Amino acid sequence: MSVPGIDVPDARGRTGLDRAGRDLTGNPDVVVRDVHLLASSWNVLRRTTLARRRRDGAWLTEQRDTYDAGDAAALLLHDVERGTVLLSRQFRFAAYANGHPDGMLVEVAAGALDGESAEAVARREAEEELGVSVADVEHAFDAFMSPGAMTQRIHCFAAPYRPADRTSAGGGLADEGEDIEVVELPFSEALAMVDDGRIADAKTIMLLQWAALRGPFRG
C-alpha cells in the first residue's frame, strides 16, 4: 500500500519523509532504530524509536515524537536615532489555544526558509510583512526554539531602518491568509512589554534582549 510522504508524493510533493534521522552518526551513544511518519499534511510529525546509552553505560530504548516545521529566519528592524523598533501583530491559533487571551502576538518579521538562504528570507519577510526594504543585515544568533519536541532552528538577524525605507504598507500576503498589522514601538516600551507579558513570542523576546545587551541599543 502506497503511503503519501513515504513512497508517493504528499500534498507538497515530498517522499522519503520516514528517512529523517536514520543516518545520524554524530553521537555514538544514540542509535536510531525506526522512524514512523505520523502526519505530513503541511509540516511533518514523526515518531522515532532510538536506543540511547546513559552515562552509567546502560542502554535504553525510547520513542520520541518530533514536529518538523523546517528552519526559519527572523529579523528585528531598529531605528537607533528615533529609538524605535518595527514589529508585527498577527493571530496565532496555537497560542490562542494554549491560553493567550486573544491569540494576537507581537513579533519580529519571520518566515520559513523553504530552500532559500536565511538572510534572503529575513529580507523578504521584512518587505512582505512590514513593508521595509533593508540594506545592511546583521546576523545575531541561531536558536532551537523548542528542542524537546520541535526540530526547528531560527536564524535571527537585525537591520536598521528609516522612515524612508518604508516601501509599502506591509501586511503580509493576502493569498496566503496573512493579515498582519505593522507596529512601531519605542524600544523601551517593547522591553516593558516583554516584562509584563504583552510580548510573549520567544524569537522576539530574544532579539529584543540581544539588542539591549549586545546589539544597537546596548548601553
Rank of each mutant, 00 (worst) to 15 (best):
M1N: 08
M1C: 10
S2H: 08
P4M: 10
D7K: 05
R12K: 15
G13M: 03
T15W: 08
L17K: 09
L17V: 13
R19G: 12
R22G: 00
L24F: 14
N27Y: 14
V30Q: 09
V32Y: 02
A39D: 11
W42D: 10
V44C: 01
T48N: 02
R53I: 00
D56Y: 02
G57N: 02
T61I: 14
Y67P: 02
A69F: 14
G70P: 14
L76V: 08
L76R: 06
L77T: 15
E81F: 02
V85E: 10
A94L: 07
A94V: 07
A94Q: 05
A95P: 03
N98H: 12
P101Q: 00
D102Y: 05
L105Q: 10
L105M: 15
E107D: 15
E107I: 08
A109E: 04
G115T: 14
G115K: 11
S117H: 06
A120T: 11
A122E: 04
E128W: 05
V134Y: 08
D142P: 02
A143K: 07
F144Y: 13
M145W: 14
S146H: 14
P147N: 05
R153V: 15
A158Y: 05
P160M: 01
D165F: 13
R166M: 04
S168F: 11
G172Y: 00
G172F: 01
L173I: 03
D175W: 12
I180Y: 00
E181Y: 03
E181D: 07
L185N: 10
F187N: 05
M193V: 00
A202H: 12
L207Y: 10
F217H: 12
